[in-house]
Design a protein around this nucleic acid. Sequence first.
DNA 1: CTTTTGTGGAGAATCATTCTTACCTGTGAC
DNA 2: GTCACAGGTAAGAATGATTCTCCACAAAAG
Lengths: 134, 134
Amino acid sequence: MQQRLAAAGLRATHQRILILESLLVLPGHPTAEQVHRQVMANTPTVSLGTVYKTLDSFVEVGLTKRVASADAQCRRYDSDCSEHHHLYCTDTKEIIDYCNPQLDALIRDFFAKQGLENFQPHSFSLHIAGTRVS
Amino acid sequence: MQQRLAAAGLRATHQRILILESLLVLPGHPTAEQVHRQVMANTPTVSLGTVYKTLDSFVEVGLTKRVASADAQCRRYDSDCSEHHHLYCTDTKEIIDYCNPQLDALIRDFFAKQGLENFQPHSFSLHIAGTRVS
DNA sequence: CTTTTGTGGAGAATCATTCTTACCTGTGAC
DNA sequence: GTCACAGGTAAGAATGATTCTCCACAAAAG
């Protein structure tokens, strides 16, 4: 944990370690609020403001990402920084991570061949809306 | 305009017509605030609360969509309800609509063949992050 | 015409997020 | 060790977007 922070150029303070750990432990795409609750379970003196600021600095240095959400009234963070896609269940509003290297390759190839006018793509993320079936 | 509202099952009031027109006129993905300003230019008596409520009801009946945005501090609406993708410029934070039927077909085929476990996809939207080049 | 229902305006209330301020802690210079 | 400093943190105020409440009004139904 300390190494990851150091590698990112952040001082490995107690709070940052806790917040990073909490983020990794929490499933899915937690909000700042949820991270704060998780942190509080361990150390009840960390303030919500610190969680916000720390998460933002994590995003800045690439330790975490913000996930886009159309209806969210609040921001969500994703500790998985590798490229991946999202399944969005329109019933439960759940967002599920989805990883598929074949799909990545397909998309990458498509844009390598076709190209985009006036735009240099760096990363792709497919948002798949639908419903869960049992 | 009236027909579109009626078809969606909404009473075609003066305010709704105005808001729908404003939404169509505004380029890109306006915020409720921007729609309100546009509406005010024409009829300065429409309240911001009405714009919010009306936009939400438009989303409910499918007259408009919310666009997902990772860093947005506020919601944005998209009057273009056809399937399309988004180019996101990491420099200017601009979101540009991008439409490509070939790409749609490619993705559709991929999932038609492969399928997803426990998930029935309805629509796809690709988020392409990168930078604009002149 | 009267009743019923849906709609809109104004502003208060709420919620997430950011900012401000003052305090604290670890670090390096001496 | 001690001093000064820089960065980090807590607490709460401030902000900004969104939602809610409440009342008035207008349109449709009977």
